[in-house]
Design a binder for these strands. Structure first.
Lengths: 185, 185
DNA sequence: TTCGGAATCGAACTTCATGTACGGAATCTA
DNA sequence: TAGATTCCGTACATGAAGTTCGATTCCGAA
């Protein structure tokens, strides 16, 4: 009972093709100009096959985002958060390594959804760190939720700007800008 | 020659109706769910009349944004920028006064276009201030453009968060969060 | 008040993308 | 190999975008 049946190869192939098609298309034109027709043409699958797996275009994008979010969260957790609330060096380095992909998703040609998702991820992490440090009472006068929105928004804006401008400075410089622009905690 | 003829009343009425319709609709549902049909129904104008004045829905939104941008820029310029690069108290106060309108445009139901436009406005202003202060050499080690992206993005994120969460703190507190979260210049 | 030009109306039409339906063919797993 | 699942492809319904055009109404200037 409850036999763990392996996933059908055909399903895997279909999903892989669609992920690849989306990523290759989003480099070429902005996300909201991409149609389902574009996707199934590029992926070479039938129309009804697409709708058998995803409800909408955004649905496909969200499944892509799961990977991205997991990556980011890992980089946020790996690094010990030093002075800055959010440790940014790992994020910038990771973004540099996968800059084509991440710029396409996060940048001006990407989707609102990606920005919101990333902001939520950053904010969640920032709140956790702030709550953790609550004991030292160093910032008891400032509301924690607003501070979290601030540091998360600042990091996302900095990252987006950096990618959109084709990374004019190395990740180390960017992490410095981030850390040194923040008031010491 | 070049007689300055006054604008036709009908044109004014049409545009006013459309602006009103857009603002009243965007409070009810998210911007990208609004159709041209919704707009002309609410405004009580003919379909072809709409296209006689605006090319697209975004075109109409942009003309709305001109007002918003002008307002913001005035508030950024009025207040002397103290320690923080961008003076934020005036912005938060102005946003509080027109919160229904601005939340609808800037918040999660608004459009990407508004966020981008606002970010551009903030960034432009921040760059001007940073360039102005360049002489004192206090931050010569950090690239000015990246710093501008940081402070602009942080302010916009804070403002958006504040409006989306129905302004849980007074404008003065928000301005404090902004100013005190930044490293002293 | 009148007149000519401009704006509006409204309805029909084209185009395009979304989403659904279904029968037959291909392919997978067991 | 056999039964089940998935895929294909075509056709169809829906709905929004954007265009066209003749008739009508309204405006501003004289």
């Amino acid at each position: 009972m409850a036999t763990k049946s392996r996933p059908d190869r055909r399903v895997q192939r279909t999903k892989d093709s669609l992920h690849f098609a989306l990523m290759s298309l989003i480099v070429e034109k902005s996300y909201d100009k991409i149609t389902v027709q574009d996707l199934i043409d590029r992926a070479n699958i039938g129309r009804s096959t697409f709708y058998a797996h995803y409800e909408t275009k955004d649905d496909l994008l969200l499944s892509e985002l799961d990977r991205l979010t997991a990556d980011i969260e890992r980089h946020l957790a790996d690094e010990p958060s030093s002075t800055a609330i959010l440790p940014s060096l790992g994020v910038f380095r990771h973004a540099a390594e996968n800059h084509r992909e991440i710029k396409a998703l996060l940048g001006s040609k990407g989707s609102d959804l990606v920005q919101r998702t990333a902001l939520a991820t950053f904010t969640r992490r920032a709140e956790a760190v702030i709550d953790e440090r609550e004991g030292d009472g160093k910032n008891g006068n400032l509301p924690a939720d607003a501070r979290a929105a601030f540091v998360a928004g600042a990091l996302l804006a900095l990252l987006t700007w950096w990618l959109d401008n084709d990374r004019p400075y190395p990740p180390e410089t960017m992490a410095n800008v981030y850390a040194q622009s923040l008031a010491p905690t």
